[in-house]
Design a protein around this nucleic acid. Structure first.
Lengths: 143, 143
DNA sequence: TAAACTAATTATAACAATTATAATTTAAGA
DNA sequence: TCTTAAATTATAATTGTTATAATTAGTTTA
């Protein structure tokens, strides 16, 4: 349940130092359900850490990715978004406002197997995103 | 069958001028099965068009995307790749050398329906990529 | 607990991909 | 062929991200 505590343990186990900045970035990632960009995180924490550098945010997101705590999402032309890894899920993305909603669906393992069989690749993982318009943006549309 | 001819018709129908540069970019996209980046295209055509600007490549890829002739693929941190739209297919990507192989699989429409039902989104489309190691890179691996 | 070592942070510069701007050139219809 | 709007070019600007070097701060060991 306590995701932050578990995440900090992971860092300890993998020999990654726990700094106030890392603590804050992790906390923000876990609490925000908004799949923030590096800049979102930077801006959100500049009150707490007025001297923090953007490089710190990027560095630590890379570290978190390397130990498997976060995933980097790149879609379309915009900047990358970061997702604290919990259980396996996919994303539904609003093409109008950019909102990302999680979506659980268990049935894509067979696709990996088929892909491996057809292409001869050793398959590690896959990603899927569904694009559309969220209810809020749909209701705002002009008729 | 003649994809270039059809593509040029599409441009005519949508009122987009056919220039030598556009013709060449489309031709290159159709013939190359390699999902090129904008820079790949730029470099490939600089023999034919020594004065062509990168901006022209980007501009026209945007135009082609707008009329539905190409799709833009962004994955990982690298630069965008462009894919001439033919039939519906997915991509299997080698994490070692970056190669992209097409993979046909018909069964993901139900995912769209479920995603729409669960999230309330009006769903337009989806994308999926499978990641792994291609046979060539697998055989090169050290044991 | 203090000293020493190593890693993390900061500030800044560099970089690469992409887009914007303004001047020039060109495709396509009258 | 002439005209006009659109496309291309050359260049500058922008944005997201990474590299560098100096400083600061965790952690380990004496």
């Amino acid at each position: 349940m306590n995701q932050l505590k578990e995440a900090l343990e992971t860092l300890k186990e993998t020999g990654v130092r726990i700094t106030p900045q890392r603590h804050a970035i992790l906390e923000y990632l876990i609490n925000s359900m908004s799949h923030p960009t590096a800049d979102d995180i930077y801006k959100a924490l500049e009150g707490k850490f007025p001297n923090m550098s953007v490089a710190t945010v990027y560095n630590n997101l890379r570290v978190f990715r390397e130990v498997g705590l976060v995933k980097e999402l790149t879609y379309g032309d915009a900047s990358a978004r970061f997702d604290f890894v919990t259980s396996h899920h996919y994303h539904v993305i609003c093409e109008s406002c950019g909102k990302i909603v999680d979506f659980h669906y268990p049935g894509l393992n067979e696709v990996e197997q088929l892909a491996s069989h057809v292409t001869g690749f050793k398959v590690n993982n896959h990603r899927m995103e569904v694009y559309g318009t969220c209810p809020e943006c749909t209701s705002k549309e002009v008729h």
